[in-house]
């Protein structure tokens, strides 16, 4: 079975570098790590490999060249191969362009199962997984909290707000996994060292046979036109318990 895991290199930490003057993101700063939600995707692939014969795991990321650090982490965890999709033309992609580029690479690799994280901690859209599936014209199940069966077909548990569903889907397919699915392992020191020295395969626009109009900023129908810190305008009024009762009365709560 050929498993492809989509790994987004994301800035470390939840406190991001945001320029206080302009309110824009200082994305150049800091190291890139595996999007924390993608650790569950990598772990699930490794668990499948431990249980089944002839499983090959390829980790794939679209990122600037320094995104290789995240793929090294993936190698250290147990991916057999990693590919970094990197090209100036890929920069500024929204989820449509990101999904298209990743789908093209996944198609080129060949696959039976694609595993994505449920969302990223930066862009935070949860759109790339289902988007890839549509480009590949395969089924997908989002929010998978457990794989119940995996053979010719797979049966998974999908978490929705009001229920969970047992969904049977034929392979090839794509799943996005939630934090409930497993407990990601840590890489061993030895594997970390090995991964440090590994050669990371990179593919650019030409390897994928994509047109520059279809990728990056040019291939993206959405634009982030403004970023700002959330702002709050209210003027608080400090009161004592009598004041509290008066307010509740005024609001027609009492």
């Amino acid at each position: 079975m050929r498993i492809v895991v989509c790994i987004k290199p994301t800035p470390e930490g939840s406190e991001l570098a945001i320029s206080p003057e302009t309110g824009t993101l200082e994305r150049e700063k800091g190291d890139l790590i595996i999007n924390p939600f993608d650790l569950y995707a990598v772990e699930e692939a490794i668990k499948i490999k431990e249980k089944q014969k002839e499983v090959e795991i390829t980790g794939i990321a679209m990122a600037p060249p320094k995104g290789d650090s995240a793929l090294r982490e993936a190698l250290a965890l147990g991916c057999d191969r990693t590919i970094l999709l990197t090209d100036r033309e890929f920069a500024g992609a929204d989820t449509l362009a990101t999904s298209r580029t990743l789908a093209k690479a996944i198609d080129k690799l060949g696959f039976d199962l694609v595993i994505c994280g449920m969302k990223s901690t930066d862009g935070d859209t949860a759109q790339v997984g289902p988007g890839i599936a549509e480009f590949l014209d395969i089924s997908h199940v989002s929010w998978v909290s457990s794989i119940l069966e995996l053979g010719e077909k797979m049966v998974v548990k999908q978490m929705l707000e009001d229920c969970y569903r047992e969904v049977e889907v034929g392979l090839p397919c794509l799943i996005t996994v939630t934090k409930e699915i497993n407990d990601p392992r840590l890489p061993s020191f030895k594997n970390k060292l090995k991964a440090k020295k590994a050669e990371i395969e990179t593919w650019g626009l030409e390897n994928l046979g994509l047109n520059p109009q279809e990728c990056g900023l040019k291939g993206s129908p959405t634009r982030v036109v403004k970023t700002a810190h959330p702002s709050y305008r209210k003027e608080v009024e400090f009161v004592d318990e009598k004041g509290f009762i008066e307010e509740l009365e005024e609001w027609r709560i009492l």
Partner: peptide, 23 residues
């Protein structure tokens, strides 16, 4: 922007080749 909606919308946006803003 529910679990069902966020699973459906990206597929639809790709079919229509249009932009989709999340949540």
């Amino acid at each position: 922007a529910t679990n069902r909606g966020r699973s459906l919308a990206p597929r639809l946006a790709v079919k229509l080749e249009t932009g989709l803003t999340a949540d």
